[in-house]
C-alpha cells in the first residue's frame, strides 16, 4: 500500500464516521420555503386581528372565539405545509444521496426532536386551556428551539445555531407579551429563511 491509498483510507474513515452519526440529507430549501409560508401566515393572522379590532358590532364578544379559531387554522395550515414540503424535499435529497430516510439514525434524530417539541405542544395546550394566551408564542419559540438544538447532534452545521437563535428570541419575546405574531414572523419566518439560505449554500448546492 502506498501513501495515496492511506490517504484514501483516512478520507473513507471520515466519511463513514460522518454518515453513521449524521443525517446529511436535510434540505436548506425546505427551511426557506417554511419561512415564506410562516411570513404569509403571519400577514394573514395580522390582517385577521386588524379586522377584528375594527369591528365594533355587538357581536364583538362572540367574534373573539371565531378569531381564535381562524388564527389556529392559519397556524395549522403553515405547520402542515412546512412539514409536507420538508418531508418531500428531504426524501428527494436522500434518494439522490442514496441515504436511507428511515434507519436507526433518523429514528434517533426524530425522537430527540419530538420529545421537547411534544412537551412544548402539550405545555401550550395547557396554557390555552388556562387562558394564558400571552405566553403561548414565547413558549412555542423556546420549545421549538430546544427541539432543534437537541436533534442537531445528528445534523450538519447550522441547525444548532438556528435552535439557539429560536431559544434566545423566545426568551426576549417574554418581555414583549402581546407581540406574539411579530415574534412568530421573526422566529418561524425570517430565521428559517436566513438559516435556510446559509444551509443551502453550504450543503444543498452540490
Amino acid at each position: 500500500m502506498n501513501t495515496e491509498n492511506y490517504l484514501k483510507d483516512i478520507t473513507e474513515i471520515k466519511s463513514i464516521m460522518n454518515r453513521s452519526t449524521k443525517f446529511l440529507s436535510l434540505s436548506g430549501m425546505s427551511g426557506i420555503l417554511a419561512g415564506i409560508y410562516a411570513l404569509i401566515g403571519a400577514f394573514a393572522g395580522n390582517a385577521l386581528i386588524k379586522q377584528y379590532i375594527s369591528d365594533f358590532s355587538i357581536y364583538r364578544y362572540e367574534n373573539v372565539y371565531l378569531l381564535r379559531i381562524k388564527l389556529i387554522l392559519v397556524a395549522a395550515a403553515v405547520l402542515v405545509l412546512s412539514i409536507t414540503t420538508g418531508f418531500i424535499l428531504t426524501y428527494k435529497k436522500a434518494k439522490k444521496n442514496k441515504e436511507a430516510i428511515w434507519n436507526s439514525l433518523t429514528k434517533k434524530l426524530l425522537i430527540d426532536f419530538c420529545v421537547p417539541l411534544f412537551t412544548g405542544g402539550i405545555f401550550c395546550v395547557i396554557l390555552m386551556i388556562k387562558k394564558y394566551y400571552g405566553i403561548i408564542a414565547p413558549a412555542t419559540l423556546i420549545f421549538y428551539g430546544v427541539a432543534l438544538f437537541s436533534a442537531s447532534k445528528y445534523t450538519l452545521g447550522t441547525i444548532k445555531y438556528l435552535g439557539i437563535s429560536e431559544i434566545i428570541l423566545g426568551l426576549i419575546s417574554l418581555f414583549f407579551i402581546g407581540y406574539g405574531i411579530t415574534f412568530w414572523a421573526i422566529g418561524f419566518g425570517i430565521l428559517h429563511i436566513l438559516y435556510g439560505i446559509i444551509f443551502y449554500y453550504q450543503h444543498d448546492r452540490n
Binding site: 483510507d9 463513514i16 464516521m17 453513521s20 436507526s104
Partner: peptide
C-alpha cells in the same frame, strides 16, 4: 488492512452500537 474492516471500525467507534442492516447500508 482492508477497506471494509476499516469502515466497520469507523462506524463502531463513533456509535454506541450499530446493527447488521445499518452497517450493510452504510
Amino acid at each position: 488492512d482492508h477497506r471494509i474492516r476499516l469502515g466497520i471500525m469507523s462506524a463502531l467507534v463513533v456509535n454506541d452500537a450499530v446493527d447488521f442492516k445499518s452497517l450493510k447500508e452504510l
